[in-house]
Design a protein around this nucleic acid. Structure first.
Lengths: 221, 221
DNA sequence: AGATATTTTTAGACTAATCTAAAATTTAAT
DNA sequence: ATTAAATTTTAGATTAGTCTAAAAATATCT
């Protein structure tokens, strides 16, 4: 089991990398945890032995699969507790963060499974943020166009911007339907076209215009 | 705010003095907290500056009013969480202690007030132990579970904890009803079962689970 | 009362997490 | 391409909580 401090470091790194798209640097983590850069370096050096993340001196840090799993479960716990505090105890949505911050460190899988069920397996917390399931999967609520999906990210098709027949026929030919999984293999900076993988099988290229027309729910993990 | 460790020391001292009627000694605290006597001495010396208790070398320790208040609030929090885990999340009464042990350290008076209300201001936890109110007062039980009846003590059945059909049928078979007198003949330290005498006639053995489920009014002898 | 056993405390050391100040490295700018 | 600025790391210290082994105090038993 990880200590509370360790869990907070993992969560901070997760949040920073989620936002910044790239390694989390020492100063950002220090600011996030309200501690000194020296402390962070120290902690990263010791914690990196536990393989939650990759750490290279002066190069910042990014989570391993193990680290991402841990962070996702923490997010799940945090958001379930927030849902409990608002839905059951009648707190306002802006009063619950600090309490959930404490509750999320309580260690019991059984507790979280039962809490989830008690709340009716909610998909979103009181802030509208998605609650990961026990396996760590969750979809972003707001659908985004494929334009906003970055390299190596994945999403599920949920719709199109407009029902242009030609576009729908085009999608058909590519075997892209509602529910189809799409992964971004690479992005072309010149014309903003994207190389994509359809349902883990077919590989093709979509133009910027096509990407803009296609809505997906982003898959985390 | 006290650290989690500090809170655990206060609670241990409270429980020991509650039982032993007198100062809590070093060894007892060490055993209770599963730590060494040396660590306890060390902790007592440092903690006594915070005026939660009086400490004199070699003489043991007893709580001040401040310490008793703190301990009582911890007990309140612990028992409210246990009630939540059993009544709302469907845990068994014997599964909740370790989880409540973690939850009780979450720091928010507002949270506890709302939890209390949400549970319907319960007077007793799932083990039949009384829950102190926000001011630290709690009602003495006139009814206690058979668990708390010691060897050679006697009581009259006044109720059951929950109306589990199987349990009621079981009681029926043993000729145990409201008003039945029960005397404890012996206690088994291994599995906490008790040998009992029913209405001065029938002798049998009740498991810990059965004892916990059966409420009696203790007969003053 | 004196010897023995038990309990408690001290001494010294360890780990996790933190700090400040100084040194090293990377990034940005002229 | 140097220099300046920002970032990151090291060095050395601190605090809370813990440990073992040894010393000191108290309790127990003839």
């Amino acid at each position: 089991m990880a200590t509370e401090t360790e869990e907070n470091y993992i969560k901070a790194i997760f949040k920073i990398t989620e936002k910044n798209q790239g390694a989390a640097n020492t100063n950002a983590i220090a600011k996030h945890l309200n501690t000194s850069a020296a402390s962070v370096t120290d902690m990263l050096r010791r914690l990196s032995e536990k393989e939650y993340f990759h750490y290279e001196k002066y190069k910042g840090v990014y989570l391993t699969t193990k680290g991402i799993q841990m962070a996702t479960q923490l997010v799940r716990k945090h958001r379930l507790w927030e849902a409990f505090l608002v839905d059951k105890l009648g707190f306002q949505w802006d009063e619950v963060h600090d309490i959930a911050e404490q509750l999320e460190h309580v260690d019991s899988d059984e507790l979280i499974a039962r809490l989830d069920k008690f709340l009716g397996n909610p998909k979103y917390d009181p802030h509208g943020d998605p609650i990961p399931n026990a396996e760590g999967k969750f979809t972003l609520r707001s659908q985004i166009s494929l334009l906003n999906l970055k390299k190596s990210e994945e999403g599920t098709v949920v719709g199109v911007r407009n029902n242009d027949t030609l576009f729908l026929q085009y999608l058909n030919k590519l075997c892209i339907n509602l529910g189809t999984r799409i992964k971004i293999i690479s992005e072309n900076d010149f014309d903003h076209s994207k190389e994509i993988l359809i349902d883990g099988e077919i590989q093709t290229v979509l133009s910027q215009k096509a990407c803009n027309n296609l809505y997906v729910k982003k898959t985390i993990l």
